[in-house]
Design a protein around this nucleic acid. Structure first.
Lengths: 316, 316
DNA sequence: ATGAAAGCGCTAACAT
DNA sequence: ATGTTAGCGCTTTCAT
């Protein structure tokens, strides 16, 4: 009653406030939710086997930026993680339909992710981090994977490289496919024939980059474009083991601008993706949607930028 | 009514279930909470300026392991992060008293953290990751900082080092103080006099390690013990810039066994702390407490283990 | 300007 | 074994 009503005041107002504060009174969210139908809770659903989840800096940065944006707008963030032994169906329907969440941000979806259907039928407002061509109506924020990968590959070509290998991301994820696509676009635009022996699939982790590089060595590339910095670092580790020098014998390029990429010797040439922008944009998009369901959220594609460091060199 | 009652069944049970499933029916948590007084929600409160938060692998691993344990026990995890412009008092009292949380896990507290008082007055069941001597009654899980740091320092001493510098963690945090204390214990046990010029305070970040190392160089150490791997890596960067070779000219040791520490050249000697164990233990402790408030949770100290890699060498 | 009352969707205790 | 009912703590509406 005394919560926000502008009419009650002159009388006891001040005294009530004092007492409330001193007793740490907080209105019970559950009761409030029951009538207002709002929880002020946003769920971040990371639909990825957890083993991969926190090996790179991407998710931490994403979580942080989303949490920050949520806090700023008085929302809470709850983390919905998939564990290996989680019953996904159960978790999804529970999470999405129990009314615990005002909205959801989902990320790291595979192409045929069951979450997408759940999201649709649930009618829960949501925003994707990473777009999905099969569900264009779900608003999303993403980096421009195709053009980023193309830019990097073009850069390697401009350095005189012809035998450019690639370590792709998981090809069952959009980002993996698109970066691969960008790579092929650049090759074909430069009139370089695509060679299957120069492609190896990874899963964004360092280990997968290491393994992929070992396989690629047989094809004698002069450069390699890895679809994530972690894989690029794994590749460099494999190269070091086999006494290839970077960048003298082979140029290595990554994707994502992981802070760690400045550390390795030589520091890694990479495509910058501003993860905090991704997270903040997604959160603000969702919150705008929640505050006014009539707004039509427009999906966004954030730019990437080439960062040249010391792991690539010209072979002119 | 039909939820779990063991008596209702034989009749329509099955049909009701089918319909429920097909309509994605989920009981409304808010209403349920209102009467049961349980939310199945656990809050992870990270009481640290976010700038530091995700620069290392510690928090990601901690979050992941806690989330995993929570999911396993049908709890949700909500993340309570401090942003630079957050009103801490408001956030605390809201979070702790609004009944949104069945319990809390708090970490990264500074010595006089206001959260501790809030936690006490709120009566909310909670577990600390990282103990606090001023609040021994709050159950906690921690790694053995003192003995870990002592072990590492003893190891450096056993390698023949005498002029051992240290880059401490934040001295307003228990872990920072204790690792420093372990370092001093080892020195004094070996009869080496403590030299203030060989100590520099950092804040666990790589940048602070870099800066600290620059300052320490004037004191001509033959070894340096950094209280975190990230600081050790910053130190190695500073050393590389000034042409000190590791480990030929100076040995470098870290703390925490960050995965990244295997990457640097040379790979980093460090103290292993099993972060997933920290998180899981904390979560399970809290959940046990929630399920049966009569249990008295016993604080735990998890062991650390010396991992010798290539950044340290004997100067015998 | 203030007080009273209805009802959100559930659970638990009770009555059949 | 099943159906009925009270009330959890709030917001909102309506009556004073």
């Amino acid at each position: 009653v005394f919560n926000k009503h502008p009419s009650v005041s002159p009388e006891v107002r001040e005294r009530v406030w004092q007492i409330a504060l001193s007793k740490h009174y907080q209105p019970c969210q559950a009761a409030r939710t029951l009538v207002t139908r709002r929880t002020n809770m946003i769920g971040l659903i990371i639909s990825e086997p957890i083993t991969r989840l926190f090996t790179g800096p991407f998710f931490p940065a994403l979580i942080q930026s989303i949490a920050e944006a949520c806090n700023q707008h008085k929302y809470y963030l709850t983390l919905v993680l998939m564990t290996t032994n989680t019953d996904r169906e159960a978790l999804y329907s529970q999470t999405l339909h129990s009314g615990q969440l005002d909205g959801a941000i989902a990320t790291s979806l595979v192409l045929d992710d069951p979450l997408l259907l759940h999201l649709q039928t649930s009618q829960l407002p949501c925003v994707l981090v990473g777009h999905h061509p099969g569900y264009p109506q779900i608003p999303s924020v993403d980096v421009d994977n195709v053009s980023g990968a193309r830019t990097m590959t073009e850069y390697l070509i401009s350095l005189g490289h012809r035998r450019i290998a690639t370590i792709t991301g998981p090809l069952n994820m959009i980002s993996g496919q698109e970066r691969f696509q960008g790579y092929r676009q650049a090759l074909s635009q430069a009139g370089i024939e695509y060679d299957d022996a120069l492609t190896a699939e990874g899963d964004y982790t360092e280990e997968s980059g290491f393994d992929a590089m070992k396989r690629l060595l047989r094809a004698n590339p002069t450069a390699v474009f890895a679809a994530s910095d972690m894989m690029a670092m794994g590749a460099m580790k494999a190269l070091a083991q086999t006494r290839w020098r970077v960048p003298e014998d082979i140029s290595v390029a990554g994707y994502g601008d992981a802070p760690i990429a400045t550390f390795v010797e030589p520091s890694l040439t990479t495509m910058q993706q501003v993860v905090p922008d991704l997270g903040r944009t997604a959160a603000e998009m969702l919150i705008a949607l929640l505050n006014d369901p009539s707004v039509v959220a427009r999906s966004q594609l954030l730019p990437t930028r080439l960062i040249v460091r010391h792991s690539t060199r010209s072979i002119a």
